[in-house]
Design a protein around this nucleic acid. Sequence first.
DNA 1: GGTGAAAGCGCG
DNA 2: AAAGCGCGCTTTCACC
Length: 589
Amino acid sequence: MPESTATAGSAARWCVLGRTGAGAWAVVDIAADGTRADPEEIAAEELAAAIARREHRASPRWVWHDTAACYGPLLATGVRVERCHDLRLCHQILRHADSVGDAADLRAARRWDAPPEAEAAAAPPALEAAPTLFDVVAEPRRRHGVPDDLEEALAEFDRQREALASAREPGRLGLLLAAESAGALVAAELSAAGVPWDVDEHDRVLTEALGPRPAADTKPARMIEVGAEVRRQLGSPDAPLDSPPRLLRVLRSAGIEVDSTSRWELAKHEHPAIAPLLQYKKLSRLLTANGWAWLDEWVRDGRYRPVYVPGGVVTGRWASSGGGALQIPRQLRPALRADPGWTLVSADVAQLEPRVLAAMAGDRAMTAAGAGRDLYTGIVESGAVATRQEAKFAMLGAMYGATTGESGRLVPRLRRTYPAAMALVDDAAEAGARGGTVSTWLGRSTHAPDPEWQRVQSSASLPEATGRDEAAARRAARDRGRFTRNFVVQGTAAEWALCWMADLRQRLAAFPPVAERDAARASGPVFERRPHLAFFLHDEVIVHSPAEHADAVAAAVRDSAAAAGRLLFGGSAVDFPLDLRVAERAEKE
DNA sequence: GGTGAAAGCGCG
DNA sequence: AAAGCGCGCTTTCACC
């Protein structure tokens, strides 16, 4: 096909975005047959409009170096895109993927190994002013992060498409790349929309637990009281409660024979100081991690804007950076509160990881145990264990590699009843312990063991190896086995969750907008009039929705879960039931 | 004065 | 109740 037919006038399948040698932004349209148009340079102030125009025409897949850097500013100006290909995230997956036949070129492109751009992650998109999109064009080029040049992007995109084509199962791996990239869009949108946060409710929770907000450098009244009680019971008027090493010495001199000051250790002992000390630690944690200082720093205009880091965990789970988005204590859930006239639709998957395991392994007995009901109850009814709690401990032990204690004791029972599922995790552990790599269902692979691990293993097999060397090698092998055992399950569960969110995101975007007067103004232009994702936590989503759409949104959340199950595990009978609730506040029962 | 490790605890 | 996977954050403390 002649190149002229793939110019901006016709519908592009991919649009590659990057900077020219002179530093200006440019787009290259690529047609479905691979024909490339000449780069079209676009002035920074025109960029959002140009992207919106192409988006409207064809919903191309935007190929860019880093979604947080490119999409954040776009969202702030009100432009949403349907799909993208995040070169940085996809590079990370492809360069390690076992299923890729030839990754040599990709691995040689070391510039693409960079972590997310710190600047992009640290600064949530400014919603106030109407910013000139990408006006960073005038700033000096970033020294960290992956390259944002157009030429580099085109070359890397070629390498990635070749690598994908050489994969054993390009369909699956391609789905992973699409899901990972969609996740990056979701993460940027979550930060832009923010979590609707009720500052007064948060303050109420703090005040109820700690007493009124104290002056700076003063402890809250309740902590002072409880601390005094601890010191009285220890008979030590100035016991240092905030320094574990010093507290440990005080505890021991008071006759409490603990080896650490941790909660589990303390709970084993009987002493009148223990109860108030545990209480003190709880209060201290609440104050330092999510107290008034957190509120001041992270909540503005009724929105908490966390920074998510897609692909930030080796297994493919997201991490977060700043604000502790993935560690919001349950105690503060009531502070997640819908805007007036809006509602929160919250859903979490019941026993996601065991279900994913059953599907991967094609374990019919485990699939049946979870069919249409609580999976742990189903395991009890199969006769493998006696109580739901035992079923849960046994499953967690199987997926984490427990060998001792209650959990380790129960695992063999599961092995008899669910041999296929157990064989899958046992095989993953065995491969890892031998130094091999393992992969998720869609093909994300573990990194090869690091050189230090290899060294420990080989030095144990030398003739002069000591018993100590051998023990160290066995321990390192077992540790890696537990990691790879868990990786296949945790990583595949993360893939399921990405597919769930990607599908849900599209369904939500199709909702009709509400009237302007009913908009959720702090959510930003793209989200203020439609239901949108507001929170994500591994196996849980919260949608902020106009009240009138709540039921339809709840149905969409369920439909998306079913769609994710079909997308990953086509013929499998495994289902993914949700605990779903619609309320003004996001509390759990 | 900054840096980094470790302890401890929050989340799945 | 136990000690097995993956994280981030705050604080303390040893060290430079």
